[in-house]
């Protein structure tokens, strides 16, 4: 069963029609990549799933987005619950200017009434182990997160997100500021994480999409042109525009 299902999803920024009738379904425990040229609406689509678009003035959304059979676009949707469930990894690693430790326990401190210190310690350890940072950082927990390398920062941001116990990871070009080696490590991490999470990744790097994703969607000018198994899309695209894009004749 689909984890997330969009039905006739339209989105406008003021008068600009950014998403046009998107019908798609995202499966649990798979990595779905959304590809397409800059400005095609792929990040916008991603931000529908945790309603981050709500922060922008003048955004209007129509249609249905079912997440575990619940329409998250309805006005009585609990945004806190939604954002705990669907966490986001951003393009630029953006740790808070706090210690490594404080970064990870931020979510827990916000969501729980009162938390015992050893419970926090436990969260820090499991989260860091999940992103394979524990061995590197276990002696540097009180250091400022701003002093980490870019790759470590991005992993830390993922750890901070996992500490909130989401179901779905929305990744908005998570590797675009990383070098190839760091990118490979983060991709490796994604493969490990998909066992437990539903992952949607927006990327303009087609090799990355091909390497890491199970399903893929190609977007162009606000439309979802093609959606299916990654292998099919990359080897036998049904639409001419998809073919042009992945063979590099477009965008």
């Amino acid at each position: 069963m689909a984890k997330i299902l969009t039905k006739g999803l339209d989105l406008w920024y003021g008068s600009f029609h950014a998403l046009k009738g998107i019908n798609s379904s995202f499966e649990a425990n798979r990595i779905t990549a959304i590809i397409g040229p800059s400005g095609c609406g792929k990040s916008t689509l991603l931000r529908v799933f945790n309603r981050m678009n709500d922060l922008i003035e003048g955004v209007r959304t129509e249609g249905e987005v079912l997440m575990d059979d619940k329409n998250i676009l309805s006005s009585d949707m609990d945004l806190v619950a939604l954002r705990k469930k669907a966490g986001m990894v951003f393009q630029r690693p953006n740790p808070f200017p706090l210690s490594v430790y404080e970064n990870i326990v931020f979510g827990e401190k916000i969501h729980a009434e009162k938390v015992a210190r050893d419970r926090l310690d436990e969260i820090v350890e499991t989260s860091l182990k999940c992103v394979l940072l524990w061995d590197e950082l276990k002696d540097r927990l009180s250091e400022s997160a701003l002093r980490l390398s870019l790759e470590q920062k991005q992993r830390l941001c993922i750890a901070r997100l996992l500490a909130v116990k989401p179901d779905i990871l929305l990744m908005d070009e998570p590797c675009s500021t990383l070098d190839p080696q760091a990118t490979a490590k983060v991709e490796e991490l994604m493969r490990e994480l998909k066992v437990r999470y539903t992952i949607i990744i927006v990327t303009h790097n087609m090799q990355q999409a091909a390497r890491v994703s199970d399903d893929a969607g190609f977007m162009l000018l606000g439309e979802l042109i093609e959606f299916g198994k990654t292998q099919d899309i990359f080897t036998a695209p049904r639409d001419k525009r998809t073919e042009d894009y992945i063979t590099g004749r477009y965008g």
Partner: peptide
Amino acid sequence: SFREVSLSLGAS
């Protein structure tokens, strides 16, 4: 970006 992250983690 700090506000964005915080909100995306479910903070009010």
